[in-house]
């Protein structure tokens, strides 16, 4: 992915040209309407570019912050097999963050700028990661419900109009399937265990169910980023995705032998979908606004990792520069 266009003269900002030319705009709209892809050096409206930077970087931040709640359990995994699986999963989350940062960088923003926006709190990440992982079953439930919800959200993004984002998402989705299945498998195994283990699973499901269905975001009628649909970035609405997720999950809960903590959850023959209860949006906005149980810890952990790694980043680049000078002198 090419972050810097060679045709742009020095002094001008990095990234695609910002001239809002009506001919370019018509060409852009025609490409979008025909279901085509926009590539990094193509002309794009400034608002499209900004929307993508916001969305892709928030997505990347979510992956990176998402390593924390699960990383919390790596040293306490109950067996070597589960530890190896969890390590691989957390490594994948890091990888997903990197694919996505790289995709965002093709829009003319630097990795450091993106990261600083996360650390300063200017950029958001998925609020699901501001909930704590209290017992081992949480690791299974995160795979099953949280990654399950993420997959629902992400599959339509594989066809999003911005090429680098779509390609990154194809890669991400392939790997997410492992995440969801390992989580469900972990829970199945716990459900075959003791009464106490089954209670742990139910407790984790009770705590994660509502935050999981909040992951799809506000109801369509309250949603603000409506241009995303017109631009082919968001192809299925929040409510439709949420419904799809609920419909798919009910059966999985049955097979697992757990209940979902919503008395209003009921099959609606006329709609052909499950009805479900009202979502507590006050809780959602409160967590987004920084008042979740773990917001402060999560950012502190990312900040510490960034600060503690500073000398490594500097030493590595100093070494590379010294080496490169020596090579030039030898030549």
């Amino acid at each position: 992915m090419y972050t810097q266009s060679l045709s742009i003269p020095d002094g001008e900002a990095k990234g695609p040209r910002k001239v809002e030319n009506p001919d370019y705009l018509a060409e852009f709209n025609a490409k979008i309407d025909a279901g085509g892809f926009i590539e990094p050096k193509d002309w794009m409206p400034e608002a499209y570019r900004k929307t993508l930077i916001r969305q892709i970087s928030q997505h990347a931040h979510s992956e990176i912050v998402g390593m924390l709640p699960e990383g919390n359990w790596i040293t306490r995994a109950p067996s070597l097999k589960r530890k190896a699986i969890l390590l691989a999963k957390v490594q994948d989350e890091g990888g997903h963050g990197l694919y996505l940062y790289a995709a965002a960088e093709t829009l003319g923003v630097s990795r450091d700028e993106l990261y600083e926006a996360l650390l300063s709190g200017k950029a958001k990440y998925s609020s699901i990661f501001n909930y704590p992982t209290l017992n081992w079953a949480d690791i299974g439930v995160i795979g099953w419900l949280v990654d399950g919800a993420a997959i629902m959200n992400q599959i339509p993004l594989c066809k999003c109009s911005y090429g680098p984002y779509a390609r990154a998402m194809i890669r991400v989705c392939k790997e997410e399937s492992f995440h969801q299945r390992q989580g469900y498998d972990l829970l199945l195994q716990m459900m075959k265990g003791t009464e106490e283990q089954r209670e742990m699973v139910q407790d984790a499901v009770n705590r994660w169910w509502w935050p999981s269905i909040m992951m799809f975001g506000p109801h369509d009628k309250d949603s603000v980023h409506t241009d995303s649909a017109r631009w082919g970035i968001k192809r299925i609405s929040n409510d439709d995705l949420r419904q799809k997720f609920v419909d798919a999950t009910v059966k999985q809960a049955e097979v697992l032998g757990v209940s979902l903590p919503d008395p209003a959850l009921k099959w609606n023959e006329a709609r052909g979908h499950y009805d479900f209860g009202a979502i507590d949006w006050d809780e959602f906005w409160s967590v987004v606004g920084g008042n979740g149980q773990c917001n402060v810890d999560r950012l502190a952990a990312r900040q510490k990792a960034w600060d503690d790694g500073a000398w490594v980043r500097e030493a590595a680049i100093a070494h590379a520069e010294k080496h490169s000078v020596r090579q030039q002198q030898a030549a």
Binding site: T3, A316, A320
Partner: peptide, 8 residues
């Protein structure tokens, strides 16, 4: 397939 940042 994508890009990475690295010192060398």
């Amino acid at each position: 397939c994508g890009s990475v940042h690295a010192p060398d």
